[in-house]
Design a protein around this nucleic acid. Structure first.
Lengths: 197, 197
DNA sequence: TGTACATCAGTGAACGCGCGTTCACTGATGTAC
DNA sequence: TGTACATCAGTGAACGCGCGTTCACTGATGTAC
C-alpha cells in the first residue's frame, strides 16, 4: 500500500491520464497540473518525462492516430474475403471506421487532426490510415471496380471527403442519419455500378 | 482629440478588434481583457455589449461565415455567363473560393467551423455558402452535366470533400500544390466528361 | 431657453482562479568494488 | 555480503502571469417639462 517514492512508470501513467482527460474534457481543458494532481504527484514531475505540455499532448495525438489505425485494421480484418464484393465492403468499412472514430472519440479526433497532431511527423508512411486507404483503392482498381482513369486523384479525394464529413459530423453540422447517404453517394461516384440497376 | 467618456460604438469596435485578434493569433489566444486593453477601455466594459466571451467569439465566427459567403458570391459574379462552360466554371470557382478562404484566413476558418461557430444557428438557410453550392449543383443538373442519378447526395458529398480538403490544407496535411489535382478529380468524378478525351 | 432627472455606457478595484515552468533539494535505487 | 557512491525521479515552494467575471460606482448624455 505504501506509495513508493519512485512511481516506477510515471511517464506511462501520465500519458494514460492525459489520454483520459483529453477524451473527457477536450484538449483545451487539459492542464499538466490537473494530470499531476490526478496521479498524486507534484506538478513539476512531468518535466522528468516530457519536455513540455505540448510534447505530452503530442503523444496523446499519436495515440489517437493509433486508435484510428487499429479501428481501420479491424474493419479490414472483418471483411477479408477475396471477392469483388468483399473488396467493395472493405473500402466502405474503412470509411465507416474513420467516421466511427470521429463519432466515438470527438475530442481525440479533434486533437489528432488539429494543429498539435498535424505537427507530428507520421510514424510510418507505409502503414497507417492513409496507406490503408491507398491499398484499398489499389485493390479496387486492379479489380477494375473504379471508374477508369479516376485512380489518380482518388486517394486525396476520398480522404478529404471522409475527413470532411467526419468534421461536419463532429461539429454537428450534419446529422448522423446522413452517414449512409454519404457512403452511398461516395460509392456511386467512384465505383462502377454493380447491380446494373 | 479628447477621448469621449462614452465611446459611441464600443460594441462594433470590440467586434472589430476581436476579429483582428482572432485573425492574427487564433481563437485560443484571444482574451476579453486583451481586446479591452487594445481599445483603452476597462476589462469590464465588454459586459455592457456581450453576455460573455463566447458571445463575442460567436459574432466573430458569424463574421467569418459572412466573409466566406462574400468570397463565394464574388466567385459566382466573376463567371456569370449562361453557357455550360460558365456553369462548370462557377462550380469550380465556388470550391476554390472555399479553399481560398481557408488558406487566407486559417484562424477565421477554424473558428467558423469549430465548436463555437457550429453552435450558432445559421442566419439564413436559403442564402449562405451551402445554398450557393446547392444552387450551382442544381444548375449543373438542369444542364445534364452531372452524372445521371447522382444529384441526390451530391451536395453533402461535395461540401464534405471541399471542407475536408480545406481542413487538411490548413493543418498542413496536404500541400497547396495538390489543389488543382483535387479540383480536377472532383470534376472528373461528378461531371460528364466534356472534351470526350 | 433652462433646469431636474432618468438612463446607462463606462470605470476601477477586486475576487478567485489555474496555469506552465523553474529551481534547489532529497531520498530511493542500483551498481562497483 | 557489506559499503561507498553516482544517478535521477521525485518534491514543494515559488515565480510571474493572465484570465473571466462581478460589483458598486460615476459621469456624460438626452429627454421632459
Amino acid at each position: 500500500m505504501g506509495r513508493a517514492y519512485h512511481h516506477g512508470s510515471l511517464d506511462e501513467a501520465m500519458l494514460e491520464q492525459a489520454i483520459a482527460a483529453v477524451r473527457e474534457l477536450g484538449t483545451d481543458h487539459v492542464s499538466l497540473r490537473s494530470i499531476a494532481q490526478a496521479l498524486n504527484v507534484s506538478p513539476s514531475s512531468a518535466y522528468n518525462h516530457f519536455n513540455d505540455k505540448e510534447a505530452l499532448l503530442g503523444e496523446v495525438a499519436q495515440f489517437g492516430l493509433s486508435v484510428l489505425d487499429e479501428r481501420m485494421a479491424n474493419a479490414l480484418a472483418r471483411h477479408a474475403g477475396g471477392s469483388d464484393v468483399d473488396a467493395r465492403e472493405r473500402f466502405a468499412q474503412l470509411g465507416l471506421a474513420y467516421i466511427g472514430f470521429a463519432i466515438d472519440e470527438p475530442n481525440l479526433f479533434r486533437l489528432t487532426f488539429g494543429p498539435i497532431g498535424a505537427k507530428r511527423p507520421q510514424t510510418n508512411p507505409s502503414s497507417g490510415p492513409y496507406a490503408k486507404l491507398n491499398a484499398a483503392l489499389d485493390d479496387l482498381d486492379m479489380r477494375r471496380l473504379i471508374r477508369p482513369g479516376t485512380r489518380g486523384g482518388l486517394d486525396t479525394m476520398v480522404w478529404a471527403a471522409t475527413h470532411g464529413f467526419a468534421c461536419l459530423l463532429v461539429e454537428g453540422a450534419v446529422p448522423p442519419e446522413a452517414i449512409s447517404d454519404f457512403m452511398d453517394s461516395l460509392a456511386q461516384l467512384m465505383l462502377m455500378s454493380d447491380t446494373g440497376e
